[in-house]
Nucleic acid binder design. Structure first.
Length: 122
DNA sequence: CCTTTGACTCACT
DNA sequence: CAGTGAGCCAAAG
């Protein structure tokens, strides 16, 4: 078959640079650690595009291999908890990783913070 | 096709 | 210290 004919026209699937990079970084987040949208965006070179990281997380659900619960906003707040089926799902997943959550916020977030730009050595 | 919104963040007032 | 506006890029209406 012609590649052009087989070409998928809708829904970006695997192969989108920004999204794929985001997922790759999120997969590398160690258990018990967390990071922020801005940190990932910054690692990718676009610190302003933190919103796109959120969109990537939304698309990440289609993959199922991305621990999106380890990604929170810069305040350590579980801003994406509403997208885990249940508002408490994200917290439980983090607690299962050994991360303590208090009032929808990561306790000692600054210490648990995992910066890809630093940890990955960029 | 144009408008609005969204899992963010920073800067200014 | 809190509220508001702007920047970013893409998807849904």
């Amino acid at each position: 078959m012609s590649a052009s004919h087989m070409e998928n026209k809708t829904k970006q699937q695997y192969g989108q640079s920004f999204f794929e990079d985001v997922w790759d970084v999120v997969r590398q987040i160690p258990k018990g650690r967390v990071t922020s949208y801005g940190a990932i965006a910054n690692y990718l070179g676009t610190r302003m595009s933190a919103r796109m990281v959120g969109w990537a997380m939304n698309a990440a659900h289609a993959i199922g291999d991305v621990p999106a619960q380890r990604v929170v906003n810069r305040n350590g707040i579980l801003s994406g908890k509403a997208h885990f089926g249940s508002p408490e799902r994200m917290q439980e997943l983090l607690e299962a990783d050994g991360v303590e959550i208090r009032n929808d916020t990561v306790v000692d977030f600054k210490t648990l913070f995992w910066d890809p730009a630093t940890e990955l050595g960029l």
